[in-house]
Computed example of a mutant assay.
Amino acid sequence: MQVLRPQSWHEALAARSELPGATPVAGGTDVMVAMKLRHFRPEVLLDLSRVSGSERYRIGPDSVHCGPRVCHTTVAERLHRQLPGLALAAGSVGSRQVRNRGTIGGSLGTASPAGDLHPMLLAAGADVELSSVRGSRWVPADGFYRDGGGTVLGADELITAVRVPLAAGPQRFQKIGRRQGLVKSLCSFALTLDRGQRRVRAAVGAYGAAPVRVLAAEQLIEESRVLYGAGTLPAALVAEFGRLAATATTPVGEGADAGYRRRAVAVLAARNLTQAWDMFLAEGHDGHHRDGQRQDP
Rank of each mutant, 00 (worst) to 15 (best):
R5E: 10
P6R: 06
W9G: 05
A14T: 15
R16P: 06
S17T: 12
E18K: 13
T23C: 13
T23H: 06
A26N: 03
T29N: 06
D30E: 14
M32C: 14
A34E: 15
M35G: 00
L37H: 12
F40W: 10
P42Y: 03
E43Y: 11
L45M: 04
R50G: 08
S54Y: 08
G60R: 14
G60M: 12
S63D: 14
P68Y: 07
V70P: 01
C71N: 15
V75T: 01
E77K: 07
R81A: 11
Q82T: 01
P84C: 00
L88A: 08
G91M: 01
S92C: 07
R96N: 09
V98I: 15
V98G: 03
G102I: 03
T103G: 06
T110D: 07
T110I: 15
A111V: 10
S112G: 13
A123Q: 08
A124K: 03
G125Q: 11
E129R: 15
E129N: 09
V133L: 10
R134T: 09
S136Y: 02
P140G: 03
P140T: 11
A141V: 13
A141D: 00
A141M: 05
F144K: 04
D147E: 15
G148K: 14
T151Y: 07
L153P: 06
G154H: 01
D156N: 01
D156W: 02
L158F: 02
I159C: 03
L166H: 12
A167C: 11
A167H: 04
A168C: 13
Q171A: 12
K175P: 06
G177S: 14
G177P: 09
L186R: 13
C187K: 05
C187W: 12
L191S: 06
T192A: 13
T192R: 13
G196K: 13
Q197D: 14
R198E: 08
V200M: 11
R201K: 15
V204C: 10
V204N: 02
Y207Q: 04
A209Y: 11
P211Y: 06
R213W: 09
E218F: 05
L220C: 02
I221P: 01
L227S: 02
L227G: 00
G229P: 00
G229E: 09
T232K: 10
L233D: 00
P234H: 01
L237H: 07
G242Y: 10
R243K: 09
T247D: 08
T249V: 12
P251K: 07
G253V: 11
E254K: 14
A256Q: 13
A258Y: 02
R261H: 08
R261L: 05
R263N: 07
A264Y: 02
L268P: 04
A269R: 00
D278I: 03
M279V: 04
M279W: 06
M279H: 11
G284C: 04
H288I: 08
D291K: 02
Q293T: 14
Q293E: 12
